[in-house]
Design a binder for these strands. Structure first.
Length: 511
RNA sequence: GAUCGCGUAGCUCAGCGGUAGAGCAUCUGCCUUUUAAGCAGAGGGUCGAUGGUUCGAGACCAUCCGCGAUCACCA
């Protein structure tokens, strides 16, 4: 039955009738002299060009076009057929008529959903009102050998698009993202927005004269954040290296070196759990600007984010998780202790650890009594305050012990000049007035080393060369880190980090 | 790592002890402006894997694999 199959073996095991049939079709086409994998195609229009430029009064303007794309549906009606092809900009309907394709029409029986074709013809509007390309010449640009899970679409009387039986298996969508991108248009849209967000951000920084730099991914000493790293090994040097958890310490070295504004959009790697907010590799943007402080940075960040939202959504508001979020400037600014007081009803400033622990019982915050002071405070904040920070809120002025790289607050004893931006209950950005007193920095890192020795394997490692750089001298500087993935989630309404990563981390398939 | 849920045709799902089902997709026939095209017919399954209970398991039990949610860990 499938006479061609044994001669043309695929790398994969062939399983289904549909796949065998497509292979047979490919062979029939080749026997008829068709190159099913040609080298190029001269495409004059995208589908969006045609749909937006067609004018019923002057159809001759589009009397000769060529389009190319993947077949997404076929409706055969005997001696005429309709299909939709999809290109990067969307879909357009193609009309095929036997009379006008004498050499090709017979071969359309060998076309399938998923094949990529090029079509030359003229543009017209069908009786049913759809702008379409009346084909005069069709070429196959790629034969698809596997069935595609295309869904059927319907437009109801209100003009809403209803999709039936969409490709929805989340595991398959992540593992076979290329299929997801083909059949689920909103997925592609999200990633186009992601690209736009990053491009807009780059443009914003470049216009200020800050420059984009690259610093090492493979680091002998990791630093700049508290997290467990991935370890790898360099054979020629015979040393272990760490995949970066942050690029902070290298970027500050560049400020020491005389750059007054540097930024890096980098993949960072943290060897920790995965969930809808965390992926082992993720993208962050860090920027350092000399002669500025964290107040300045808050102004810059709220300006930037409101512009990003407008660039991507056309407005500075976005609906996220059922709530309208407004990125209108200015964002709320409040100190950590103010927010704690607001949401717990207690002033926690000056409280001892034991006082905090007994308060935890009172306000119903579960806590391990062995936790450190900082841990308890952080826990109260996470449980009582953070979920309430829906609208963009700068949480300012953290306890010094929580922030070993931030500069002491100019007026508030025991605090540092640091802020984090929270939106919809999660953290999007983190920034400081950077600590540039090498004596203070050494003490803080030595404290970290002691905590490390005491068993905290996330405490920072003392980086002597970084301290050496600070001794050479770093100007007053403000630094900022933005979680790009989370920002993209917010601005595109996606609830899982996996929906803004093309290829989220998955366990290997075993079969 | 813990708990709960899910895994059946290419896709979306039903079936919950008694001969493996539907819609779409696919194939055959008819149909030259259709559009969730239509009409008539057909093929397609190691029911995630391995054990067990039972006369009989897709279903019940155990273990394992994968995915998701919640929690823990963690920005």
């Amino acid at each position: 039955m499938y006479q061609f199959y044994p001669q043309r073996v695929m790398s994969d095991i062939i399983k289904t009738d549909q796949e065998l049939r497509r292979l047979e079709e490919l062979n029939l086409l080749e026997e008829a002299g068709v190159n099913v994998y040609p080298y190029s195609y001269d495409k004059t229009h995208s589908s969006i060009d045609i749909l937006t430029n067609f004018d019923d009064a002057n159809p001759e303007v589009l009397s000769s076009v060529s389009v190319a794309g993947r077949i997404m549906s076929i409706r055969r009606m005997g001696k005429a057929s309709f299909c939709h092809i999809q290109d990067d900009s969307g879909k357009i309907q193609i009309y095929l008529k036997q009379d006008e394709l004498p050499d090709f029409y017979e071969k359309t029986k060998l076309l399938d959903i998923g094949d990529i074709i090029g079509v030359k013809g003229f543009v017209f509007r069908t009786r049913m009102g759809e702008v379409s390309v009346h084909s005069k010449e069709i070429v196959i640009l790629c034969k698809s050998l596997k069935p595609l899970p295309v869904a059927k679409e319907e437009v109801d009387e209100q003009g809403n698009k209803i999709v039936h039986d969409a490709f929805a298996d989340v595991e398959l969508r992540y593992r076979k993202r290329y299929i997801d991108l083909i059949v689920n248009p909103e997925v592609k849209d999200t990633f186009k927005k992601r690209s736009k967000i990053i491009a807009t951000m780059r443009n914003y920084f470049d216009e200020q004269g800050w420059i984009e730099v690259e610093t090492p991914v493979l680091q002998p000493i990791y630093g700049g954040a508290t997290a467990r790293p991935f370890v790898t090994h360099h054979n020629a040097l015979d040393i272990d290296l760490y995949l970066r958890i942050a690029d902070e310490l290298y970027l500050k070295r560049l400020i020491v070196g005389g750059f007054e504004g540097v930024y890096e959009i980098s993949k960072n790697f943290r060897n920790e759990g995965m969930d809808k907010m965390h992926n082992p590799e993720f993208t962050s943007m860090e920027i350092y600007v000399a002669y500025k402080d964290y107040e300045w940075m808050m102004n810059m960040l709220e300006d930037l984010i409101s512009k990003l939202c407008i660039a991507v959504n056309g407005t500075d508001e976005v609906e996220y998780d059922g709530q309208m979020i407004s990125f209108k400037k200015p964002f709320r600014r409040a100190s950590m202790y103010e927010l704690l007081k607001e949401y717990t009803g207690h002033d926690l400033q000056g409280k001892t650890k034991d006082e905090l622990i007994s308060l935890c019982k009172e306000i119903d915050v579960p806590i391990d009594p062995k936790s450190s002071f900082m841990k308890v405070l952080d826990e109260i904040f996470s449980v009582k305050v953070q979920p309430n920070l829906i609208q963009p809120t700068f949480n300012m002025d953290y306890p010094l012990e929580m922030s070993p790289l931030a500069k002491k607050h100019r007026t508030k004893e025991g605090l540092v000049e640091r802020f984090e931006l929270f939106v919809s209950g999660f953290e999007v950005a983190n920034a400081f007035s950077e600590l540039n007193d090498p004596r203070d920095q050494r003490e803080r890192l030595e404290d970290q080393a002691r905590e490390r020795a005491a068993g905290d394997d996330e405490a920072m490692i003392l980086d002597e060369d970084f301290l050496n750089a600070l001794e050479i001298g770093m100007p007053p500087t403000s630094g900022l880190g933005v979680g790009i993935d989370r920002l993209v989630m917010l601005l595109t309404g996606r609830k899982s980090i996996r929906d803004v990563l093309f290829f989220p981390q998955m366990k290997p398939e075993t079969k």
